[in-house]
Design a protein around this nucleic acid. Structure first.
Lengths: 355, 355
DNA sequence: TGCCGATGAACAAACGATTGCGCTAGCCTA
DNA sequence: TAGGCTAGCGCAATCGTTTGTTCATCGGCA
């Protein structure tokens, strides 16, 4: 059992409050030098660590953040989390990780538990456009930041990419390559990324004077498995598309796998574009053309936004949106020179800037 | 600000303790039915949630676990974490995630912070053979479980694979293929996995009556980058090996990349075996031959061991070791039929059993 | 009527820290 | 020598729960 203030006080023949002030380096504390050194010696000797629970109760601050994501085994969310922890740890915050598997019910129960725990702030990367959980959160005083997906078109603090533009650029790339029958393995229409990227897909068609075939848009979810299932469906229609824009790289990977199984050559029979540029996208063969977003930065910026809210006690309703960059690989263009430089994320590449 | 017991008590004209007992469904509580229903209505109406901090202070239990790993963007550790959370969440525990990047100093500071926070238990996957942090942990009363790496040959609760056997099987596979000059991109000798897999590598040589060339063993760390650097080194010697056993799949991936750059064909000029069978191993081309271990189960078993310790308040000094399975892919054997079945993790495959 | 046992709920002491305020010396000054 | 100032600490309330104990009331029974 760790030592308490009371025990130390007994050993030093002073009142607990005195120890507390010395340990916390209370500015403006008037204390005799010998008393202070006696106490400091005791603190060192015992390695006293204040009980964080008691401290939290008194100070109404836990120094704990929480990150709520669909699934940390998805590399996108793992990188996101690192971004958060990298800014939180140096500031003395620990971070809880909650996986929802995309289930609203699990998200709700996690958020409820986090509320009971009185975490100081929450970062949510699993929100829906209409999300009771987010609405509850707004009602509480608890600071939060949405990442990647926003909710309700609200004015909540948010960090993510310009998904409308991203969807448009991805699709325009396929149009530029001469494709006219372009499919879309869409995200859920209940999720902002799904809605906006799909809208971008349509906008690119309009801008090019092309008519998008509604039959070529199928909802594919966000996992590799659901993507594969949707792709199997899409590629089985009588007149299949010659190219697809997948809402995420994971969906693109599932698609590539299914396409290969069905005898499509990539990119000759089917060109594929993904989204996010997760590390996997550049490692598989063929490399997946994708929209690069600064994933780690999503996390670190969101973390900073959250910590500023917490420490300055201000609403800080900022919204940060990064512009995604098209990264062209072999899944859309055959015969690319696959050098390390072009195939792997390149740190000197131009990153989208907040605007 | 959430509602407190005291406020509810005022509204219901009863003492806070009465509310508490009703909320907690205190068995053996004698209470008038109308009082009870009045309180229950109030609880429902206000959606009362006890303050977890205050609760934790009183009950000396936080219902928080912590997982300490090198880096969650490494898919191995991400899967491990999921295993933990999947058993912790249903039991009402939240899980803190701490990344150390393999630095003892960061591990120490994390563990100190976790101690201050009074987490109920810790799972460590980043321990060293001689690890002051682990020794400190033994000194505390705080339950913990080591995963993947153990420490000090101690009797700490542990979940991992039989690394000696794994190293032996991996190397024997290369010997079986006819290789006689086999390199080893070793883990750190300060880490149990590094030490044992290297020992297994040597044992396989001995068993086959082969002499291992000490010049072909280089320490490669655990990241792709450090693995690549070590591989560059190893492959530059005058008489380079025709095969290597890499301590992890990440190191194997770095090796493959470097080998390709240096003009080695895989597996014709250089065969590569990894360890862990992370999802990436089956997705890259050529697929990486590796030793499969049940990663998710590492986490879930460790979580269960830890929770049992916490809830039953017993030491539960169990050690669980899984036997790894050799998964052969194209990085050691050319011309394999790359079907989905053989290239992707197969859930019906025989998993190593605890022994 | 008087006593006893249930019954129903209040009381109060924790848990371990933080912090505004009050108290007691000692010293200086007038 | 009395009064006041200040340095150096102690006091005690507080954060929100939990839980052993006590207390009042009431009905029943002798």
């Amino acid at each position: 059992m760790p030592v308490t203030l009371k025990e130390l006080a007994a050993r030093a023949n002073v009142h607990p409050s005195t120890i507390s002030r010395v340990a916390n380096n209370d500015p403006g504390l008037r204390i005799a030098t010998d008393t202070r050194s006696r106490i400091e010696a005791l603190l060192r000797e015992t390695g006293y660590q204040p009980n964080g629970i008691a401290r939290g109760l008194k100070l109404r601050q836990t120094n704990v953040l929480a990150v709520v994501i669909p699934d940390v085994t998805n590399p996108f969310f793992a990188a996101l989390f690192r971004g958060v922890e990298d800014v939180a740890a140096p500031r003395g915050f620990n971070v809880l990780l909650c996986n929802t598997d995309g289930l609203p019910e699990r998200q709700r129960s996690h958020l409820q538990s986090l509320q009971a725990r009185r975490v100081d702030g929450v970062i949510i990367a699993s929100s829906f456009l209409k999300d009771p959980s987010v609405r509850d959160l707004r009602g509480q005083k608890r600071p939060f930041v949405l990442v990647n997906r926003f909710s309700d078109d609200g004015e909540d603090p948010f960090v993510g990419s310009d998904d409308l533009l991203g969807g448009q650029l991805a699709t325009a790339h396929l149009i530029d390559l001469g494709h006219t029958r372009i499919g879309h393995l869409a995200g859920k229409s209940t999720v902002s990324t799904g809605m906006l990227r799909r809208r971008g897909y349509l906008a690119a068609h309009t801008a090019a004077g092309l008519a998008a075939d509604p039959g070529l848009v199928v909802e594919a979810g966000y996992t590799e498995e659901s993507g594969a299932a949707a792709a199997r469906h899409l590629l089985s229609v009588p007149d299949p598309p010659t190219a697809v824009f997948a809402v995420t790289d994971m969906v693109a990977l599932g698609t590539a796998e299914v396409a290969r199984q069905m005898g499509f050559r990539i990119p000759e029979d089917l060109a594929i574009v993904g989204y996010n540029d997760i590390p996997l996208a550049s490692r598989v063969s063929p490399g997946i053309t994708t929209m690069r977003v600064p994933i780690h930065e999503f996390g670190s910026v969101a973390g900073r936004l959250l910590l500023d809210q917490i420490e300055n006690d201000e609403p800080a309703q900022r919204r940060v949106r990064f512009t995604p960059d098209l990264i062209v690989r072999e899944s859309t263009v055959a015969g690319l020179i696959r050098s390390a430089r072009s195939a792997r994320p390149n740190s000197s590449a131009e990153q989208g800037a907040p605007r």
